[in-house]
Design a protein around this nucleic acid. Structure first.
Lengths: 234, 234
DNA sequence: AATAATAAATGTAAATTTGACACTTATTAT
DNA sequence: ATAATAAGTGTCAAATTTACATTTATTATT
């Protein structure tokens, strides 16, 4: 057993660039989608990639992720969580770049679905993701896997829906995430049994003549539930 | 919505150092422990800290973590997993350092428990962790939380035990991780129901006169179980 | 050789949760 | 008035989880 002495390294390390890359999931037209961009700089200008940027000198990596997300989507106060850091030596052939990925979950309106096209961005279905630059395809696959795992035990799904949503919408979202159909009665029974949703007296009639009641997620109720030690699992 | 142009940043970023820090968990004398080191370099020489190092120019961060772990514990082929990256601007007051944490799980023999002392290292009980440098205390708390979460659904616990272990040992480990007692009969029933352990014909008689049969974890059986879609949860 | 001591190993029944399954209801358009 | 549409609802069987106490194998002691 030998303890290395860091001192000689402290001042001899090469310049390494730190980037953040955001994996932006959205739920549009009852489908899970991923937002990708046409790269604007060399190398690989014009290829599809995640949106990312180098972090600034006076900026934490969390803040860097927030900023790039705000600048590309206009969205503030969005769900954002660090995922994993990628640090192979030659992942960017030009320079040594270490990339910290974040994923963000957002609800997307039809308007936003179209407006991104003007900025060389596009929402892709999860099963139609094109080839991406560098190791971005790996990042995306890791993120999808992580989303599927987390959705089971954390209430992250609600970030993909607007403030008010219907139970059938919520069910469709979980069916997209898990890629399997769920029973209507059992799903409704389970989600309502947690008592973490507030039912409004309004209905969304876009999907049927009868209309479905709108609900909202109650974060405080959720947190007291967790504090009680209840195992949240959908 | 505005897309930033990275080009001007590509060559103006300051020098940022990349470190890896390892959160080393061990299971000794039926207790969960954490391995900490007396820091050998300024700033904060002599204070307790995680073991870490800057990564080298030609080394991936994964390899950097492996190397520092090997050099400090002599252990190769040890369970190591990336946890989270810490990137506040002033987390190291001396320079801008971004740290990628890894946690490693290892089984510790009594011999190793004592021998580390010679190297200014010490195994601490999880509830007796001293104040640590920089943001290492936060890292440790995050790692403990992560360990508790992962243990529920991934077979990481076996990394904290030697190749052959008894069911009572395994139960004690899970009791340490979850910090609550488990029922002997139910625990045994559940763990054996997965059929991922191989029973040997040897007994460990150190804990009782009767002796407890030794088992080993069968990774292949575990993987076929997961492939079948079974929900592994302890 | 019998006995005491110790922790390992085992089974069952009640309670809870999950999973499968089909009809009624509210509303709009014809 | 009727047809059409998706929302909303209940029950029963099966599986899982939980709570709980005794027997067993072995060693040390007398």
């Amino acid at each position: 057993m030998k303890l290395i002495d860091n001192a000689h390294i402290y001042n001899t390390q090469q310049k390494i660039l730190i980037a953040v890359d955001c994996i932006i999931f959205g739920f549009v037209a009852n489908k899970l989608k991923l937002l990708l961009f046409k790269r604007k700089i060399e190398p690989f200008r014009g290829d599809w990639s995640l949106i990312g940027a180098f972090i600034k000198n006076d900026q934490s990596i969390d803040d860097g992720a927030k900023q790039i997300l705000f600048e590309t989507t206009g969205l503030d106060n969005i769900y954002l969580e660090q995922l994993k850091t990628y640090g192979s030596v030659y992942r960017d052939p030009a320079e040594r770049v270490i990339s910290v990925t974040y994923y963000s979950l957002t609800s997307v309106t039809e308007f936003e679905l179209e407006s991104v096209e003007k900025y060389d961005a596009h929402w892709f279905d999860l099963d139609e993701i094109p080839e991406l630059i560098f190791d971005h395809s790996v990042m995306v696959q890791d993120a999808i896997e992580s989303l599927r795992q987390k959705a089971k035990h954390q209430p992250i799904g609600f970030n993909l829906l607007p403030e008010f949503f219907t139970i059938p919408e919520l069910q469709t979202l979980y069916e997209c995430i898990y890629q399997r159909p769920l029973d209507t009665r059992n799903f409704r029974k389970k989600i309502l049994s947690f008592d973490i949703l507030n039912k409004s007296d309004k209905k969304d009639k876009s999907g049927s003549k009868k209309g479905a009641f709108l609900y909202s997620f109650d974060k405080e109720k959720f947190e007291t539930l967790i504090a009680k030690g209840v195992n949240f699992e959908i």
